[in-house]
Design a protein around this nucleic acid. Structure first.
Lengths: 264, 264
DNA sequence: CGGGAGGTTGAGCATGTTCAAAGGATGTGG
DNA sequence: CCACATCCTTTGAACATGCTCAACCTCCCG
């Protein structure tokens, strides 16, 4: 039986997003005007590229700023004194990361998994958003709340799901997130993670991740290969994760602000 | 040896906060003008009181709104199909909870632990904040990011800390949070949780929580009784949790917006 | 062809779980 | 004021899920 070899095949960049993933994501959060979208489009300035498997440096730059992932996959992680590592979050295109988030300098680190293209957002430009673009402000807040919900869901995973449930949930979460920025096709998406990285995200040992994945494949729940995953039976995966039917789909705004425009 | 009886002594309400905890919390996030503070003060309208150990109902009200905890302790939790429960978050005075956060209707529930006093914030008033009070907007965003950091820290707990580390961290987190809204005196604060509830928050069984707590007391790290905890050796607790010295203290804004006032 | 990274497999082990029972504290009704 | 009921804590012992360690395998790439 040929090995699926899911892991490091990191030469590819993401499937091309038709539209700016940040705009796409925030559009789910609040209705944005043309102007808002333009502002967002010009928010993130010069691109900077990073190789795979490197830390994104911070201390180098004294001034704090945010950045936006444009392409690639990164992680927010923390090394424990014991030598183990916990991956807190995967950062995918469209994700915004404010360094101010660091409660303490180097509370954690951010590293690339694949090659990453990101662009920096100076502090004052971020502030201008709040001063002059209330709908974007609302969208940012709302988006932060959605991310909170995702983090809470991961807390549930680590707290109360067994290994199978955790793996199943992670696959679903990543699928939904990629879907919401237009980077999943059908039930498949790129997942260039080693089993060790998966373990570090799931609070499991790599070998146990391995066993679960093998089971899932044997049960025809998923199929992997070439750094891509296909979720063959999403419903069943949700079941294993203990989620109701459409559990974590990102819900769009409903009654969100029909505010008067607030141009710069 | 007399039992410390930490658990249910829920008759007391919180120590009286000298000032509005929300304002107190957001002041850490961005410099607020007098006006901002007034707005915040009048943000949350009619008080509503709940008994201990009841769910806060939502479906009853079709219109979505947020609420603010004014007094008491509540939890955000989820019941798993298996019958177990995961507590995602403790809600303490000053915490804002937007029902929109629910990614899906009843994605999870909110229940009181002690008697709780909260007040509702209508949707449109929330929106006005973003339209007319940019510094508050920024503070809200920033506060949401801080909460994210807290959630990530809990992910680390559940993913990579052993039982002792989890308990130690939780105690520190609650202590810091109470401190930031002025509800901790010295190293002690009210903790009206049963060991079962602690277990549900920590992803541990109640009996194991028990054993850890007993150890901690034997080691004179903490002291409990009457629904109060005293952290006798915070440094050592942080060590056990694998945190550096001042790890999770809430850091204040530094270079945050010195924006022009933006009165209504 | 050789080396390295990652995947697979097995066996013993450990942390934390489950189940069960008993002990204190508190509140209620007789 | 006592008896009882309830809720929480404490303790012990068997058990289980997932971990560690170690080996081997496979693929890819230089």
């Amino acid at each position: 039986m040929p090995r699926p070899a899911m892991g490091r095949d990191r030469r590819f960049v993401d499937l091309l997003p038709a539209t700016n993933p940040l705009i796409r994501k925030l559009s789910h959060c609040a209705p944005l005007s043309k102007l808002d979208k333009n502002v967002l489009h010009e928010l993130a300035t010069g691109d900077e590229r990073f190789r795979a498997d490197v830390d994104i440096p911070f201390e180098a730059t004294p001034l704090r700023r945010a950045f936006l992932i444009k392409e690639g996959l990164a992680i927010r992680y923390r090394n424990m004194p014991s030598g183990s590592r916990q991956i807190m979050t995967f950062l995918i295109p469209g994700d915004l990361c404010d360094e101010n988030v660091f409660l303490n300098p180097m509370d954690h680190s951010i590293a690339t998994i694949t090659p990453v293209c990101l662009s920096w957002i100076p502090r004052e430009r971020m502030m201008n958003l709040f001063l002059h673009h209330p709908r974007i402000s609302a969208a940012l807040w709302w988006s932060a709340l959605q991310e909170q919900a995702m983090l809470r869901e991961r807390i549930v995973s680590l707290g109360r799901r067994d290994a199978r449930g955790r793996v199943a949930y992670l696959l679903c979460e990543l699928y939904w997130r990629y879907l919401s920025v237009g980077l999943a096709i059908d039930e498949s998406f790129r997942l260039p993670l080693t089993q060790m990285e998966l373990g570090d995200a799931l609070g499991l040992s790599p070998v146990h991740v391995n066993r679960v994945l093998i089971d899932f494949r044997r049960e025809s729940l998923i199929s992997m290969g070439n750094g891509k995953v296909i979720l063959l039976l999403i419903c069943e995966l949700q079941n294993i994760a203990g989620l109701g039917k459409g559990y974590l789909q990102l819900r769009d705004h409903e009654d969100y602000p029909k505010s008067k425009s607030a141009g710069r």
